[in-house]
């Protein structure tokens, strides 16, 4: 089944290997991911900062690139998927793109929700094989397949209900995630919040990192790269030997 695939601007800019891994995961599940050519960003950074016009300008670029076909649009980021499925209709209301935005919102689905067949737009029952073999390609050092702890991103947890799907996707791939204390509490990224209120943002990251480290797990995963980069940046500053991988990298049959 053909699906559109949108990696998110952060993945493209900072960890393109995550996008590649997500596409391999989709292919291993029997899907045919077609990257959305010409897409840039969902507009969330400006939208959450209060700049709707700027957000619309950027989101329109991605919306139009997405086209109007009937296929699901799989997004490798919980917060971008939330922006597209929850906020695009409002963002484009009253513009020429209003109908397209509503349809795009209905088609948008976060990667693990799609893989576990729990989202309406996904095809239920289509699950990736429990484990896969294939050629490598990850830019990072190999993932040992050891214990992993899930960081719940707020958008995924509260808006998409994706807390369960990340865990289920990992379980389907033979990985049993460990649970951390206070997993429902925000890590402090929050887009512009992380640079507008850096001290508070970092204090929130510290509590999150302490809870994650207390599990004894050295590897942390999430469906949101943005949270992971924030936590990783703080962990490195503190000299914590924790490793942060997007869930697509962990599900990647190529690693």
């Amino acid at each position: 089944m053909v699906v559109r695939f949108f990696a998110s601007c952060l993945v493209e800019l900072l960890q393109p290997n995550v996008g590649a891994a997500a596409q391999r995961v989709l292919r291993a599940g029997g899907h045919d991911p077609q990257p959305v050519r010409g897409a840039t960003c969902c507009g969330q950074p400006a939208y959450n900062a209060g700049y709707a016009g700027e957000a619309r300008r950027v989101a329109r670029r991605t919306l139009r690139a997405l086209g109007d076909a009937d296929t699901a649009c799989v997004v490798a980021s919980g917060s971008c998927a939330t922006m597209m499925s929850h906020h695009w209709p409002e963002l484009f209301e009253g513009t020429a793109d209003a109908d397209a935005a509503r349809r795009a919102a209905a088609r948008t689905v976060e990667l693990t929700a799609f893989l576990t067949g729990t989202a309406a737009a996904g095809s239920a029952g289509d699950r990736p094989p429990a484990s896969g073999t294939g050629d490598g390609g990850s830019a990072q050092e190999p993932d040992g397949g050891g214990p992993v702890v899930v960081h719940d991103s707020c958008h995924a947890l509260r808006e998409l209900g994706a807390g369960a799907t990340v865990r289920r996707a990992l379980a389907d791939a033979g990985r049993t995630p460990t649970e951390a204390q206070g997993t429902e509490r925000c890590c402090g990224f929050g887009g512009s919040f992380s640079v507008k209120m850096p001290a508070v943002s970092v204090a929130m990251a510290d509590e999150k990192l302490d809870n994650l480290a207390a599990t004894g797990c050295m590897q942390i995963t999430s469906c949101d790269l943005s949270c992971l980069l924030h936590l990783q940046g703080r962990a490195r500053r503190r000299g914590l030997a924790l490793r942060f991988d997007h869930v697509a990298s962990l599900l990647d049959p190529g690693t």
């Binding site: 959450n48 707020c154 509260r158 925000c186 402090g188 929050g190 887009g191 919040f193 508070v200 929130m204």
Partner: peptide, 12 residues
């Protein structure tokens, strides 16, 4: 209004 990461725990 900026003093929030918009995590949504309050709404929940």
């Amino acid at each position: 209004a900026e003093a929030s990461s918009l995590c949504g725990a309050c709404t929940e």
